[in-house]
Design a protein around this nucleic acid. Structure first.
Lengths: 230, 230
DNA sequence: TAGCTAATGTACGAAACGGTTCGTTAGTAA
DNA sequence: TTACTAACGAACCGTTTCGTACATTAGCTA
């Protein structure tokens, strides 16, 4: 039993490392909050799964509430930095939109814990985002990219007019988000696993087809009364 | 102070009413679970807001877990009974689809508590639906209606082929669900209230346009390689 | 090398929480 | 009218849970 269980646990290496401790708390807390929700998450459980004690959570973050806010900030920062890397403006508008939608699709699928955290934050009516200074009026790079692609598409007559970037982002996000967030109830009720590997390509293509169809469909300038609000 | 606070609290009326008590527990529990999530909901809080005691929750339902399951069963039963009333098959397929989508849109908007309960159940990976006998393999009337409309539309050449009813239901639901479930984080991040009354008609029309555009767009039988999975 | 401070561990407390025990009463049927 | 049971209320109980008080030490700096 001479094996060291952790590289940093060897004698001679410094045991104190504020940055590492803080980072580990965040990582473990992210898992625990995503697993059990804000109220369901246990501070003692987070403490048990890290190499330091509960005391450190209060030392570095202040409390459960601020820890959750920090987890959200960290998670959002991660996705935003990936959105920064988007490089689709060299493509023609139709291909660029499809590519952007697929990137969102891929990202949501790859980060189910992030989806859960966002669902949880919505249950709490975004109160932690509201309390955060860094998350408050945060402009998403994705919206800017989207806006430019839409402008280009309209300029060359490929897209119908008056489609707003934020609205289109909502449309794309809703499909990608729902597929992950609601996969359990949807699966239980309709007997279909929206995130099954075998269905993946079909849904990915469906998303692109849907968005492109919406953008390129001839828009009825005035098509008379729609189905009335019943 | 001779005013009776509750009609049923008058002398002479019977105080014992199992059905009423059970119904009130369910009603109050629905609010509390939707407000705070499963773990966040407090049994004592539910008890405090009803005209009976905590004891009755355990008497009628057994415990917190079974109470939540009962709340889910009751909520799903409500929406399903409304779906039964759908009467759109007399319309032409395009109008029928739009009408169906708008009904989903309206229902989601009118029942934010139900949306919250479903979000909460997804955080818990649909374990209560799985444990329920009535919710288990429940076939939704909406899917059947959708299937018939799609068949009719294909038969008369209005819709492109190979669009599955369950998939289309997922598409419609995702937009309607996301708009309600994620309105808080979306509003905080992008500064737009998806459920603002002033935006309502626009989103309602956008949903219909999106679905119809997808269904009627010329489907590329083979359009070559799509954007690859990066 | 002495001393200072950031960083960490231990142990515990008070309140909240889900659930239960025990007794009581309204309504009803014989 | 009595006796029985479904329906109900009050008080409580053990555990969990967030948070803190207090002690300790690693590592840097004068």
């Amino acid at each position: 039993m001479t094996t060291t269980e952790e590289p940093s646990a060897r004698r001679g290496t410094r045991i104190r490392d504020a940055a590492r401790t803080k980072a580990e708390i965040l990582a473990v807390a992210t898992e625990e909050f995503a697993r059990a929700g804000y109220t369901g998450a246990r501070v003692d459980e987070i403490a048990a799964r890290m190499r330091t004690t509960k005391r450190m959570i209060y030392y570095y973050f202040g409390g459960k509430e601020q820890l959750f806010t920090a987890v959200l900030e960290h998670s959002y920062a991660e996705i935003r930095s990936k959105e920064q890397d988007l490089d689709v403006e060299h493509l023609d508008p139709v291909a660029a939109i499809r590519r952007l939608a697929e990137l969102t699709f891929d990202h949501h699928e790859a980060h189910p814990d992030f989806i859960r955290l966002v669902s949880i934050e919505n249950i709490h009516e975004a109160e932690h985002i509201a309390a955060s200074q860094t998350l408050g009026s945060l402009n998403s790079p994705a919206i800017d990219v989207l806006r430019r692609i839409l402008d280009a598409g309209r300029a060359q007559g490929a897209f119908s007019a008056d489609v707003d970037a934020v609205d289109l982002h909502a449309m794309i996000s809703s499909f990608c988000f729902f597929r992950v967030s609601n996969r359990h109830t949807f699966g239980a009720l309709f007997g279909r696993d929206l995130t099954a590997a075998s269905e993946r390509e079909r849904y990915r293509r469906m998303l692109g087809d849907m968005v492109i169809a919406y953008l390129t469909a001839p828009r009825h300038a005035d098509q008379g009364p729609l189905t009335p609000d019943h």
